[in-house]
Design a protein around this nucleic acid. Structure first.
Length: 473
DNA sequence: CCTGATGCGTC
DNA sequence: GTCGGAC
DNA sequence: GTCCGACGACGCATCAGG
């Protein structure tokens, strides 16, 4: 924590322009999730790079990978290893004496990087903690962390948040970075419990509200003033192209008075002839890219359960009951296309149990959930902000670097930038960059080691490491 | 052109 | 989505 | 309790190889 704090402090003082890259470095991503920028590096890629960098046959690497090497979380591992390797300084650059073969060296790097990654990621939002702690120190207040977290949960865009922080400071953050149409807010997730009575115990004395949790795909639908529609998935990926029918339905079924909205809903496969909900598996057979309205085979019904934004104004500060009223008032139900999620508000155990049984009995794939207490008690705090809301997507946990708009891939490591221009396809270009990076690092270490070894022992594959190089935790 | 391996998203 | 370990 | 990783099933998208 202190290290993170000092790092950020130093960056802000010395090279404020680097703050954004550093923030991305810490937050394990290269762009806001809805922009769809990804590294696209998987396990096989890592193996290729490793093979290439060491001049070892790919087949052999693959064999090792099966048995001894245990490369997991490929992208995270490799990138972290690269970053860590690049950060070696004179004192630290010595490999342990037992590390002899290239394979062991790779394993060693992976091991180091694993620690690095764990240290960073396992403290949940260490980046934000450091951030906010630092800011809190700066302004002599302990609330900074919450403000930053709140801002990010509602407006997950570091580009804007960082620049707003630098120019206007943390206290204005709620104003400079607020919920914005077209930027998906982190969805509120349900938390599993064992039975209805557990929930009642937990929420004792608080009025609660319950609703069906339909078995489909979570969607957050943004409708802009100009009629443009965007749909975002649970992980804030833009999935508009997968659901042209939903775009049409939502445009048609919004009431006249509605000029813009953000609808939180579940997209459920639906048999319109039979008026029947279909299982999730049916939904998953839909094509995903550039779907035309005419070639849709599996229809969906929108089960709407929340309205986060309406006619130019956020509803996030309202409680769930109010938001529901807005929801009901803003759309026409049409059973084949859009339905409101079945719900009741009650603290009577039997009534709730009845709804639960109905959900289970009538439609096997539907269960029931309870919203968070502050959402149903009329509290002003609508979207509870937790550390988990800030967790980066697990898919790309350790992106070291970022892709600039001008198509440069930049690695920010070891106090220096390594920039490679992108040629050809993005994917291929990234691989080249990674490979170059790796080789450059190799050379650096080579010259550091000097005295040791005449050359890399390319054939040093004998029995590799029996030690525990696995990435266990 | 088809096919299997791989990647990656959904739950 | 579930599970279980760490705090 | 909370957080966060590992884990599983499934199906589309993509691409290398035949």
């Amino acid at each position: 924590m202190e290290v993170v704090c000092n790092l950020l402090r130093t960056v802000i003082h010395a090279t404020p322009d680097d703050l954004l890259p550093v923030v991305y470095l810490f937050s394990c991503c290269i762009a806001p999730p809805h922009e769809g920028l990804e590294f696209g590096i998987g396990e096989s890629t890592v193996l290729e790079v490793v093979a290439d960098a060491y001049g070892i046959a790919l087949d052999r690497i693959k064999e090792w990978n099966k048995k001894d090497l245990q490369i997991q979380c490929a992208e995270q591992t490799l990138l972290a290893a690269l970053g860590q390797a690049a950060m070696y300084n004179e004192e630290d650059s010595k490999l342990p004496p037992e590390v002899q073969s290239p394979l062991e060296e790779v394993s060693h790097l992976i091991e180091i990087s694993e620690k690095c990654v764990i240290a960073r990621i396992s403290s949940s939002d260490s980046f934000l903690q450091g951030w906010s702690t630092m800011l809190a120190i700066k302004v002599g207040h302990g609330e900074a962390a919450d403000i930053v977290k709140q801002a990010y949960s509602v407006f997950p865009d570091f580009d804007k948040i960082v620049s707003a922080l630098l120019t206007d400071g943390v206290w204005l953050l709620p104003k400079t970075c607020k919920f914005t149409l077209g930027v998906p807010v982190h969805p509120m997730l349900a938390k599993p419990i064992n039975c209805v009575s557990d929930a009642l115990t937990k929420f004792k004395g608080i009025e609660i509200t319950c609703e069906y949790k339909y078995d489909g795909e979570r969607a957050q639908i943004h409708y802009l003033e100009n009629g443009l529609v965007e749909i975002y998935s649970r992980k804030s990926e833009r999935i508009t192209g997968k659901f042209p029918d939903v775009v049409a339905a939502v445009s048609r079924l919004k009431k006249i008075i509605v000029s813009s909205f953000v609808l939180d809903c579940e997209l459920v496969a639906y048999d319109r002839a039979m008026h029947k909900i279909l299982i999730l598996q049916e939904l998953s057979t839909r094509a995903r890219k550039d779907v035309g309205t005419s070639d849709i085979e599996v229809n969906v019904c929108i089960f709407a359960f929340d309205l986060l934004y309406l006619n130019g104004q956020t509803l996030l500060q309202e409680n769930l009951i109010i938001r529901r009223e807005h929801l009901y008032a803003s759309f026409e139900e049409e059973s084949e296309f859009l339905q409101f999620a079945t719900s009741i508000t009650s603290n009577d155990a039997e009534e709730i149990q009845k709804l639960f049984d109905k959900a289970v009995g009538a439609r096997q794939s539907i269960d029931i959930m309870q919203k968070k207490p502050n959402l149903m008690s009329g509290s002003k705090t609508v979207f509870e902000v937790k550390a988990s809301d800030l967790t980066c997507s697990s898919e790309y946990p350790a992106a070291i670097g970022l892709v600039n708009p001008d198509k440069l891939l930049t690695f920010i490591v070891g106090g220096g930038d390594f920039t490679f221009s992108i040629k050809g396809s993005l994917r291929g270009a990234r691989l080249v960059a990674v490979a170059k990076m790796y080789k450059a690092q190799e050379q650096r270490k080579e010259s550091n080691k000097q005295s040791n070894m005449t050359n890399e022992d390319k054939d040093g594959d004998e029995d590799a490491d029996k030690g525990d190089h696995r990435l266990s935790r």
